[in-house]
Design a protein around this nucleic acid. Structure first.
Lengths: 228, 228
DNA sequence: TCAAAAGTGTTCTTATTACACCCATGG
DNA sequence: CCATGGGTGTAATAAGAACACTTTTGA
């Protein structure tokens, strides 16, 4: 075995471009939403697309995804999970760009779009109404959405989409929006409360024309102990 | 919104190198094994490492993983699943190399190592005995092994590691090796047979000094219908 | 006839599903 | 007092876990 001295030129013919694309999920008005912006690359100019950017060679890939989110929403401690890497040869029209897909869970009301994002019409779109996206972003979206569905049934990550205090009805609506099916209220509550990840704040909803719901919050200690 | 005409130079500063690394699982003598070769890159020369190679910019990433396996084992229709992309800045000592990790399931007896692999001592290592690997390959291995454990409990992919005909005891041994725990024989058989993915060939083991076991095979029709 | 692994059912426990009425508030 | 959504328990079913003995072969 002859050790090969690794020199830059060894890699010369293997250079390509990496991007990180994020499916940013939010929840509002009983609807699961995804953050989209308008593409600015030919031939997709003006078409809706996921948010993404090229990864700098000096940058960790997870940090790149975080940077993209921070730039776009102003949020820095966001739930972010790598899902899959998409690398078909012709997925990008002008160059070989391999994309690492992430999904993020954010609270919509905390987002503040920067000017660049505003120019590109950054906005929330109900997942049920999303049509054709730029590039292979429909495929990426489908993959990430499926991953979210699977994860929500194993881990209490749904909390990342809700404000600090929420009612169990809101929580159920969130699960129903993500899973795309209606759940039995009693069974849902039984299961959710049996995890002890949710604690009653003792507070009640106000100003609603019906029996006010109890407000719950995360059991911080238990949530973070389980690596939430 | 001004459309940006994408030109090569736009991407000039974002070039990096992509590799595919494969955790190749095999099963032999009741043991889950992983195919390793000796690294030939400073400072890891001679250390055990996963099999991998750089991805050519003209090559689909999944095809690259398949090519690596084909070159190494001679096998071309291998169960292969992308797991995760590893992109810490310093994971490769001499350049920025981002690695897409795959795991593969192969039948050990079908593998034929080519000369290059032989030179680098391609060989099967019990997963229980694997120590320090080159690069960040321990991390990659752990990730892929965990993924395999999860998948085996949902899908009957274990078959990919067994010869065309096998006994239920062998199948159980495989599950136990992967999961790292002993299973109850009666419950295991009940569950496995209830899937109808396995059919009795009517044949028996020969030449064993005990009651010969029935030989089973895959229910092809059902297996492939479920996207196996 | 012995050693060694193959093969087989039932009971208990736990998790999941299905289902209907009363409660508290604002208007 | 009515409309609206909040909140609660029990019974039935299904899935998973625990457990021990008989069978068939080669040596």
């Amino acid at each position: 075995m002859q050790p090969i001295k690794p020199e830059k030129k060894q890699f010369e013919n293997y250079q390509m471009v990496l991007s990180a694309d994020c499916v940013v999920f939010g929840f509002d008005a009983g609807d699961l939403k995804v953050l989209l912006i308008q593409a600015n690359e030919i031939p997709f100019v003006g078409q809706w697309s996921l948010v993404g950017d090229l990864i700098d060679p000096k940058e960790d890939i997870d940090e790149a995804a975080n940077r993209i989110l921070k730039d776009l929403t102003g949020l820095s401690k966001v739930y972010l999970e790598q899902v899959h890497t998409f690398g078909k040869i012709d997925r990008h029209p002008n160059d070989r760009v391999v994309s690492i897909a992430y999904y993020a869970l954010v609270k919509i009301e905390d987002c503040v779009f920067d000017k660049a994002s505003q120019k590109r019409n950054a906005s929330w779109h109900s997942i049920k109404k999303i049509k054709t996206l730029a590039f292979d972003h429909n495929e990426i979206l489908d993959h990430c959405y499926l991953q979210l569905k699977n994860q929500i049934q194993r881990y209490p990550i749904g909390l990342e989409l809700l404000p600090p205090q929420f009612t169990l009805t809101e929580l159920q609506a969130l699960y129903e929006a993500i899973l795309g099916e209606v759940l039995d209220t009693r069974n849902f509550r039984k299961k959710i409360l049996s995890t002890n990840l949710f604690v009653d704040t003792g507070l009640l909803q106000k100003g609603v024309a019906h029996r006010p719901a109890k407000l719950f919050k995360i059991n911080q200690e238990k949530y973070f102990k389980n690596g939430g």
